[in-house]
């Protein structure tokens, strides 16, 4: 082991196993990957999460599609035992969607039916950052006395993603803001105050949503880098780039996802996607992302497709055409950057 390969020495408040395996067979069978995710950690990833926790800064995760950016957030929440919320950003997402919204249509409908509730509070819909900052006030839409809703949300753990909350730390949360580069350029800047001060005001009711630094959520923001992020936003984030995997890491990821899978399927699939094994190139980055690799293994296992069969050749060609790569096994699986 060279000095550069030696593990970094520090106190890890986030200290996952190198391979976080799925602990519930039920989750694997039902395809629910959110509650009990598999993740293969590297030292840079663990360090970046620890630094983000220590500095209470958002962690901006870069990397290609399928590199494991979003699943990192789920895994971190799972390892820490914190609540987990996510918001997938689209081109129409506004910053207010992540904080709170008011259902004016429902209010209009209530008004036309003579069932208008007093004030705006019953019509407020908390966003994921509100749930993460202050789940109790989110349950009551800000003000318990004014809410008047029979929501059954008295339990502060309750939230729209109850399945990922049960039994977890009630005061801490991990928030995933996924694919922020899809949003209009103003959106990241409009999140600077809530993410920096851990508070925001619900404009329609004046209610102040806030949390203390000790209970600050860990916010992971992913980007596929389709758009450049505003400089002011970047300066306030911890940045982590998940690099292209090596062949060794891909195999490790495959084994973590399918611990029962024997080499009779794993090895041929790996060779088919990446080309023949070459010990001297085992640590070079490859042009197959982990999500694609795991999905291929899952499909081959589930459908009983063996590499080399007619079905496999058809599948591999389709994949190759989609991504503009050479045919697998013809030495084209390598990253040619």
């Amino acid at each position: 082991m060279t000095p550069d390969d030696a593990p970094l020495v520090y106190v890890k408040s986030f200290n996952p196993s190198r391979v976080e395996r799925r602990r519930s067979a039920e989750a694997a069978e039902t395809g629910d990957l959110r509650r009990d995710p598999v993740y293969v950690y590297t030292d840079p990833i663990v360090l970046a999460v620890n630094v983000a926790l220590a500095t209470r800064r958002p962690l901006l995760v870069r990397g290609r599609s399928g590199a494991g950016k979003s699943s990192l957030a789920r895994s971190v929440a799972h390892v820490l035992g914190w609540r987990y919320y996510e918001a997938v950003v689209t081109s129409r997402t506004q910053a207010s969607d992540l904080l709170s919204q008011v259902d004016l249509l429902r209010r209009l409908q209530d008004a036309r039916e003579g069932a208008l509730a007093e004030g705006m509070t019953p019509y407020v819909e908390p966003g994921p950052l509100w749930w993460a900052f202050a789940p109790k006030s989110a349950c009551w839409r800000g003000d318990r006395a004014e809410c008047g809703l029979e929501t059954g949300l008295e339990d502060p753990n309750q939230n729209p993603e109850a399945a990922t909350v049960e039994g977890r730390e009630p005061h801490r949360a991990v928030v995933l803001i996924d694919e922020i580069d899809k949003a209009d350029p103003d959106v990241p800047n409009n999140l600077l105050v809530p993410l920096g001060s851990f508070q925001f005001q619900v404009a329609e009711t004046g209610f102040q949503v806030a949390t203390t630094p000790e209970r600050a959520p860990l916010v992971l923001i992913t980007t596929n880098e389709e758009r450049e992020m505003p400089a002011a936003f970047l300066r306030r984030c911890i940045e982590l780039e998940i690099e292209l995997p090596t062949r060794r890491r891909l195999v490790e990821i495959g084994q973590a996802h399918f611990p029962e899978m024997d080499g009779d399927l794993l090895d041929p699939v790996t060779s088919a996607l990446l080309g023949p094994e070459d010990p001297q190139r085992e640590d070079e980055p490859v042009d197959v992302n982990p999500a694609e690799f795991v999905d291929t293994l899952r499909a081959c296992e589930g459908l009983g497709i063996q590499p080399g069969s007619a079905e496999w050749r058809a599948l591999s060609k389709a994949t190759v055409w989609k991504f503009g790569r050479d045919e697998p096994g013809a030495g084209g699986g390598r990253n040619r950057r």
Binding site: N50, V51, G196, A232, R236
Partner: peptide
């Protein structure tokens, strides 16, 4: 109020915590 950009203060926090 926005939080200032990442600065040596963040390094100090990280060194104490880690």
């Amino acid at each position: 109020m926005t939080r200032p950009a990442v600065s040596p203060a963040d390094l100090a926090r990280a060194l104490v915590a880690l």
